[in-house]
Design a protein around this nucleic acid. Structure first.
Length: 257
DNA sequence: ATGGTCGTTTGACGA
């Protein structure tokens, strides 16, 4: 089973690239982030024609997350569903696909360390952990994936200096990510690759992709049973090339049956 | 020279 994640930076703008990628890589599950559309404009019928069931949690011009699956969409949940005040942003959707509980997450960017949005980012990550504690156990088959807007360590950014005094690598963010890992998840990409400089996002500006100036912020966090079944984890860098790419490229994991 | 690019959109703002 192949589970992929991709921040598409507008599904309207990216639909051709997404359908092309589905045909080329035939993931069983594809988690999307930043669809930037409302539920009533999500192109579910087009995905059905390609063999995918789907669930979308959108709001309109910003945010929006989805899960596409060829192996079933069971028990979909949008948002945290924890009875506390609803998240104002559409950033989380869950579904069980082929026996794996999958989350498509779009963690808040944070903007800057002195911005209210940074506190929202930290509290959002706290709430994700609380949601896991309340709704899952580490012995479940879990794949919590998406755009975390966190570079887990200094190998995951082209120059660690850009993270000094900035978001994406602050101690508080990395502590939140570590708390998810301590609960019972693994950044499964790092089970298979040690090198620095393997990125999933590159700023559109300044030719950063071609200069290899990026970050690895799109993560697949797997529970132990899923980690044990992992054959490979790949960043599909070619999807960042060519006409009208997203600024993120897909990352996927292949599991043995 | 203190920007650079895309997306939402038609004036800025978010990433």
């Amino acid at each position: 089973m192949r589970i992929a994640t991709w921040n598409v930076n507008s599904l309207n703008a990216r639909m051709e690239r997404v359908t092309e990628w589905l045909e080329l890589f035939a993931p069983d599950v594809l988690c999307l982030q930043e669809t930037k559309m409302a539920d009533d404009t999500f192109p579910a019928a087009e995905f059905t024609e390609l063999g995918y069931e789907s669930v979308h949690h959108g709001q309109g011009q910003w945010n929006g997350v989805a899960i596409l699956s060829k192996v079933g969409i069971e028990d979909p949940v949008s948002g945290f569903g924890d009875g506390i005040e609803e998240d104002p942003d559409a950033r989380l959707v869950w579904a069980t696909c082929g026996g794996v509980r999958v989350a498509s997450c779009y963690v808040p960017n944070g903007r800057s360390l002195d911005d209210d949005h940074y506190q929202y980012k930290l509290s959002w990550l706290d709430r994700l952990l609380a949601h896991l504690q309340a709704n899952a156990t580490p012995s479940d088959d879990l794949c919590v994936t998406g755009d975390f807007n966190i570079a887990p360590d200094d190998r995951d950014v082209w120059d660690p200096k850009v993270l000094v005094g900035a978001t994406h690598g602050s101690a508080a963010e990395r502590e939140r990510l570590q708390a998810l890992i301590d609960w019972g998840l693994v950044d499964v990409f790092r089970e298979h690759h040690d090198e620095a400089g393997l990125f999933s996002w590159w700023d559109y500006r300044g030719g950063n992709f071609h200069k290899r100036l990026g970050m690895r912020i799109d993560l697949l966090l797997t529970s132990d049973s899923v980690t044990q079944k992992t054959e490979r984890v790949l960043i599909e860098r070619n999807a960042r090339k060519g006409k009208d790419p997203s600024d993120h490229t897909p990352v996927f994991v292949d599991l043995t049956p």
